[in-house]
Design a protein around this nucleic acid. Structure first.
Lengths: 179, 179
DNA sequence: ATCAACTGAAACAACGATGTTGCATGTTCG
DNA sequence: CGAACATGCAACATCGTTGTTTCAGTTGAT
């Protein structure tokens, strides 16, 4: 692919994320306009709406996987590594609100990536439990679901996000709000 | 409205919830078929797709409000009342997955009901904090958002739901998973 | 029983989104 | 430079959804 074509592709994907996160039913026309290209160009770069969405989902999940994968390499104490990974994931999720929530049909490759993310997370949760961070009797699948839900909720309608968000998420997850 | 018309209206709304929760982009045709009526009947009972969605949202939120309102009257200790209300909300949410999540445009009336729900919840959270159930420094808006996110997550893909779900939600909210 | 209300069915118009083609004009890259 | 590639633009065909109308037949209320 030539460099200008690559530029168009990137512009379209970024515009799609912007437009669709505001209005999930937006047309390719609106996306093209936001990207500063003609609608025909969108059809040249992507076979159709579905193909565009699948590509977006693939890219977004790949970034989530990269963010999560750091935690495996991280030699720091679990709590420190967890905080770092959470911050990274929050950043990705903030930039891919639509792609990570409103896309259901994913290709096999993306499903594999999602599986990777789940696996890495579950492995880490086991490690965290062994390290005494989590109560031994905690249902790790439920922990993972709550963790992801907290991350989603944390990103909602938030213009800015910083280190404090990861702290809040983990504090909520581990301590709750009880006295 | 005659009784048969009322029956049609109910059948359409119930079918819409069923069909749209499986496929948010489903057509009125599909909804009509699932409801066992002709598409024209859908148009007779509702001005259009938007009107149908607004009606669904209004009904669903009204039920949520009723479920939450109990907590105000409930003379039992806060924790008991909270558990009861959570169970009721989970039941409603379970039956209105689509209406309570995928509808953004609500009429003024529904917005008022949503406001009621938020107000009642916030009032109760204050009461819970005063009763020593929540840490004094807890950010109550964040508590409310997490509470609602936990309820949503709890309902996800769950065919059955019982008393244990409310217990799990409140346990997670108050204690978290930390050791 | 009677009348108004409701329904299903079929046909139709209108609309927007999608997808395709052809062609002239730019742009990239060897 | 020049060939291959990429783009914008306009035009067109197609498709599914929505919305409306008409009418004959059914159902509900008093």
């Amino acid at each position: 692919m030539r460099s200008d074509a690559a530029r168009s592709t990137r512009a379209i994907i970024e515009a799609a994320e912007r437009v669709l996160s505001a209005n999930p039913a937006a047309s390719l026309e609106q996306i093209a306009e936001a990207a500063g290209v003609a609608r025909t160009t969108v059809h040249r770069r992507f076979a159709g709406r579905e193909a565009l969405l699948r590509t977006m989902g693939a890219q977004a999940w790949a970034q989530i996987r990269d963010a999560v994968a750091e935690i495996v390499q991280d030699a720091a104490p679990p709590m420190v590594a967890w905080h770092r990974a959470t911050t990274a994931v929050l950043a990705v999720k903030h930039g891919w609100t639509f792609a990570l929530t409103h896309i259901d049909e994913a290709d096999a490759e993306t499903l594999a990536v999602i599986g990777e993310v789940t696996a890495i997370t579950d492995t880490f949760l086991l490690r965290a439990r062994d390290a005494g961070l989590l109560r031994p009797e905690a249902d790790l699948e439920w922990v993972r679901r709550v963790y992801m839900a907290l991350i989603s909720e944390s990103v909602h309608g938030q213009a800015e996000h910083g280190d404090a968000d990861a702290t809040r998420v983990l504090d909520t997850l581990l301590r709750g709000f009880g006295a």
